[in-house]
């Protein structure tokens, strides 16, 4: 793949001339800016970048990016993006989706794109609510959550995006708060580098219909104590004082304090995002305290597009059929004089 860039881009090169129309205070602005900042760092040519979205607030995203883009139909962006990537594996293809788009109406495409490991990136704006249709519960809304369509409280248990994704064989899963743009930018860059389907779940606040849904993890005052930002090869330490960490006790993760009960930094688990076995990654995804953010899983595997490309090259190499005439006039033909 030729990804050399002659021109050094800035974030302005990726901003389209369209007025951004999300509600004031929405985390979507943060995500947009983080993406526009990440792209110049990725080493891709602007003309090779494609954003494909479904339907929902998040899915207006492509209109604001000065790249190739398609605002498609509800839930289908992963399937469209699969076609785009297979047709031209040189492209950097991004899917922009929300919790309803990817896990309700588009659930089927979401799990299959992960299973196949198509080399594209999915940014999942998870605000645990339907915004564009004005406030119904989504497949990630909590039980008991009162919404327009659940005035007495939601009775449907939620999906955990990460668990669903890893269950569907996701090779790359990252989670990030909607108010941490620096880390988000870095994760976007890592996702682009990763060859395979990268899923980034953004805990995105909806200030209108589900305001504060992530406050207990993302509020600036508590974030360092409540979030564990994992990095491959580094011990899983968190807390304002950097004194809390994770250890494995039996089949469960446990939070311990360094310096108490004889615990030292050496006892803390070291994050291995590249491990093939997803057991520990699933446990990290499930953890409520601390909420694990960062790149939780990043297992290198052959991609679907590469497999297909290799197969076609191999078949072409072995075949005597180069033009359709070679096929049409082969086998049981006969002459009429």
């Amino acid at each position: 793949m030729d990804t050399t860039v002659e021109k050094k881009y800035t974030f302005k090169d990726f901003a389209s001339d369209q007025e951004v129309r999300w509600c004031p205070g929405c985390d979507d602005y943060v995500i947009l800016r983080a993406m526009q900042k990440a792209l110049p760092e990725m080493g891709v040519k602007k003309q090779d970048v494609v954003f494909i979205s479904g339907i929902g607030c998040s899915s207006r995203f492509p209109y604001y990016m000065d790249t190739y883009g398609m605002h498609s139909i509800h839930g289908r962006a992963p399937a469209i993006a699969t076609g785009t990537k297979l047709a031209n594996p040189n492209l950097s293809v991004w899917v922009i989706t929300g919790d309803g788009d990817s896990m309700a109406i588009g659930g089927n495409h979401f799990i299959h794109v992960l299973r196949r490991n198509v080399d594209l990136n999915i940014v999942l704006f998870n605000n645990e609510i339907y915004g564009l249709t004005k406030g119904q519960f989504s497949p990630t809304s909590l039980v008991g959550q009162k919404t327009k369509s659940s005035p007495y409280g939601n009775t449907q248990p939620p999906f955990s995006a990460g668990e669903l994704a890893i269950g569907a064989q996701a090779r790359f899963f990252a989670r990030i708060g909607g108010n941490t743009p620096k880390e988000m930018t870095q994760i976007f860059i890592e996702a682009e580098k990763f060859e395979g389907t990268s899923l980034i779940e953004v805990m995105q606040n909806c200030p209108i219909f589900n305001d504060g849904c992530y406050d207990e993890f993302t509020d600036k005052a508590v974030r360092e104590d409540k979030q564990l930002f994992v990095e491959h090869g580094k011990p899983m330490i968190f807390g304002k004082e950097r004194d809390k960490g994770l250890v494995l006790k039996g089949l469960k993760l446990e939070v311990v304090t360094i310096g108490e009960n004889g615990i030292t930094q050496e006892d803390i688990l070291v994050h291995d995002a590249k491990e093939q076995d997803p057991t520990l990654h699933q446990m990290l995804v499930r953890l409520h305290y601390p909420k694990v953010t960062g790149i939780i899983r990043s297992y290198d595997d052959i991609t679907f597009d590469e497999r297909m490309d290799n197969q076609i090259k191999e078949v072409k190499r072995k075949s005597n059929f180069h033009y359709t005439d070679d096929l049409f006039f082969s086998g049981d033909t006969y002459e009429v004089k």
Binding site: V50, I52, I80, T82, G83, T84, L86, A87
Partner: peptide, 10 residues
């Protein structure tokens, strides 16, 4: 939809 995506890519 995959066909639409492939068409988009030419």
């Amino acid at each position: 939809t995959s066909a639409i995506g492939a068409s988009f890519a030419g």
